[in-house]
């Protein structure tokens, strides 16, 4: 570990900070999902850095954690997108048929 700035460590911190900011300030559910995913990418970047810091070959354990994390984040996001579509479909139906 050096005190030299590590560009990717700074990038990870930036992703976490920006993702948090977006999670708080964004109102649109889809935008909020994007912000959460950006935050998650910062976390994944952190894990990859931890793996990279192992002397010799990269540490496979954080890599496995990131792979698991990506699949979980993507499937949860896909489910979230289905929720968003359902909400819009219902809102449209209400407009078409008046109040129900």
């Amino acid at each position: 570990m050096s005190i030299m700035p590590e560009p990717f460590a700074l990038a990870a911190a930036a992703l976490i900070a920006v993702g948090f900011y977006g999670f708080i300030t964004q109102q649109h559910p889809l935008r909020r999902l994007l912000a959460i995913n950006i935050f998650g990418n910062g976390v994944f970047m952190t894990l990859i850095l931890v793996a990279y810091w192992l002397p010799g070959d990269a540490d496979p354990v954080p890599h496995a954690m990131v792979l698991t994390g990506i699949v979980i984040a993507v499937s949860a996001t896909a489910f979230g997108l289905a929720l968003i579509r359902r909400r819009i479909l219902d809102a449209n139906r209400k407009q078409d048929h008046g109040d129900d």
Partner: peptide, 22 residues
Amino acid sequence: AAAVGSIALGTAFAVVLHTVEV
């Protein structure tokens, strides 16, 4: 508040990632 919070969070993470003794 979100901006201040996220700057603090980001700074903390940057500091931690630069000083962590792995």
